[in-house]
Design a protein around this nucleic acid. Structure first.
Lengths: 336, 336
DNA sequence: ACTATATGTGTAACCGGTTACACATTAGAG
DNA sequence: CTCTAATGTGTAACCGGTTACACATATAGT
């Protein structure tokens, strides 16, 4: 029974308790709290002491209700299982934390309903901005929001965005694989609705067309599940392929796996280039050559951009394109 | 200028607007909204029409402020980059969505400060429960909360939890590798502070002690980064090792990779067993034999358990242990 | 016909903050 | 020594919901 003295949820100290303890009005406490309006040095000290003694923490919900603004940022990912996105998320998260903002992550799972649901949740909780990396950049979902949206790893005319240079990425991938001697190349094309995927594709096509090689195009999604099936049919239909440009590392992993299974020799007989450079790529065997997108940095940039917009700071540029690099590992042959 | 007619953020329809339109009081609208107290059939129809016409969505923040309860559930992950956790998250997410609850995911990044920060955010936003898979299950962080907490993939006396049978998992791993003829086994031990990791370890040790094999213990974390380094030193220090029981699939991948790099033949010369069965395990080459934890189902169970607790339903059991299975792939040898 | 109870609705207080405004008091300018 | 402006503080309304309570009407029981 003694324990009952210490009622749990003691955190229910309100601003009025603080006001009473400090012998001032709630308005004064609020002013001190927010460094707003006038307040006397001595009063401030009094209030701050009371706050400390009572271990007072302002109720964010009450704040949020009045101001119609919270300290929350929503981050929407299309597929939390694709390791590329957690990496983006880490970047966003670190930047937000440094700014004293809180992140809530939603996983849309590539389903528009889930995405709608999360946007609704974000709205209803008065987030002050959203960073979205989903596949619905072009829909109306993001049209009539009262807070800014930044797209990440996505391109759209209607909103600011941060993405990597897909044209160059595709170009580089094709260039490197051609340079290393592949003659009959399979080019994987990611989801058609994704500008970033299409840019990669176009970049690669350009380069392939200018070279003296054969190539075929295979359309595939970005997901795990499809990748495996796609890998199997790829080798059945085009057994003579000697170079593969994958649409992302996940597909590349599935292809690499299948290639080894059927006894192809990598990279001597078949070269593979991935895209993204997810952490696991270097743990594959042979380690995967790939086009690296600076995921973590992209996340950070997106966060910075969003914060600038929220703070109504003038923007140098609405769209930030980041460079990609070819990471040479061992699914491609060496050149001098 | 015409566009200005359509003011963005039109979503600011309040309950009073609805009341006015329907010709009733706000209390009535509220009652209809929540199916609480009495309301006449006809009135309900009126109100619902008004709601639809105005496209009214109740303000969750206002609700939350009064009731001190939201529809939010917090999910805290220790490391979003380890693919095991996104898988857990998917299970939690699906179950919550079916129950009309919203999930906000936090990534503690194995840093207690971040974890504290997220718990604070969760509290301040009136979540009605937390599911936590972090490494701090034993700290006071989760002590004085006014809402229930369920631990996931973690064991603790103080809270309900859902986890897989680590003892059995460790036992199975050891059993299978011994049975397949490894004689000098390296046993990886995960973070000491994690009961689940220790259970696996103990289970394996038990089994190893009862068999006629040599073994050594190597302590390692669960993270990517450490795994690579650890793999290198492992083979330097114990080149004669012919079987490795990894503490998770990430470590196993790193080890597999390193083993192939230095020319060991898998599984003939060296067998490897992982733990978790993350999606990428079967994409490795050779595909990784491992102990499967039913991550998605564990997530779902944890969600169900939490929902029961929130609903004050009687619990059949506070701690749910799920079974693990040996997934035979190709880093272990075949037996008849 | 006459209560007792069930049904239906509105008024106003409340949740815990923020802030417009009114009212002092003090400082500075002429 | 005024007069104005700057400083400091409190009162009360407000954000958008919920709900205790009062009141009115309908239904049922005897």
């Amino acid at each position: 029974m003694c324990n009952r003295l210490h009622i749990r949820g003691e955190s229910m100290v309100t601003i009025r308790d603080v006001a009473k303890k400090a012998g001032v009005s709630v308005a004064t406490v609020s002013r001190v709290l927010n460094n707003k309006g006038y307040s006397h040095e001595d009063t401030r000290k009094l209030v701050n002491e009371a706050i400390k003694e009572l271990n007072y923490k302002p109720n964010e919900v009450a704040r949020s209700l009045f101001k119609k603004k919270s300290r929350l940022i929503g981050l929407l990912l299309p597929d939390i299982r694709n390791p590329f996105f957690p990496e983006l998320a880490r970047g966003v998260e670190d930047e937000m934390q440094e700014q004293g903002l809180h992140l809530i992550i939603g996983n849309a799972d590539e389903k528009p309903e889930k995405e709608i649901d999360y946007i609704q949740t974000f709205k209803q909780n008065n987030v002050i901005g959203i960073i979205s990396a989903t596949n619905q950049a072009e829909t109306e979902l993001y049209e009539d929001l009262s807070f800014p949206v930044v797209f990440l790893d996505r391109i759209t005319k209607s909103h600011p965005s941060v993405y990597a240079d897909g044209l160059d990425g595709g170009k580089k991938a094709a260039h490197e694989i051609i340079r290393r001697g592949s003659k009959r190349i399979a080019l994987l094309r990611g989801p058609i609705e994704l500008r970033t995927a299409q840019d990669r594709f176009k970049g690669a096509v350009d380069e392939l067309c200018n070279a003296n090689v054969d190539f075929q195009v295979i359309t595939s999604s970005f997901s795990f599940h499809d990748a495996e099936k796609m890998a199997k049919t790829l080798f059945e239909k085009f057994p003579e392929t000697d170079g593969i440009i994958a649409s992302n590392d996940l597909s590349a992993a599935a292809i690499l796996h299948e290639a080894l299974r059927i006894g192809r020799s990598i990279p001597d007989d078949l070269q593979i280039i991935g895209y993204d450079d997810i952490p696991l790529s270097k743990l594959l065997f042979p380690p995967l050559s790939t086009i690296r997108q600076p995921a973590y940095d992209m996340g950070r940039e997106a966060a910075k951009l969003l914060i600038k917009i929220i703070g109504k700071q003038p923007l140098v540029q609405k769209n930030i394109q980041m460079p990609v690099t070819f990471i040479e590992r061992q699914t491609t042959r060496k050149v001098e």
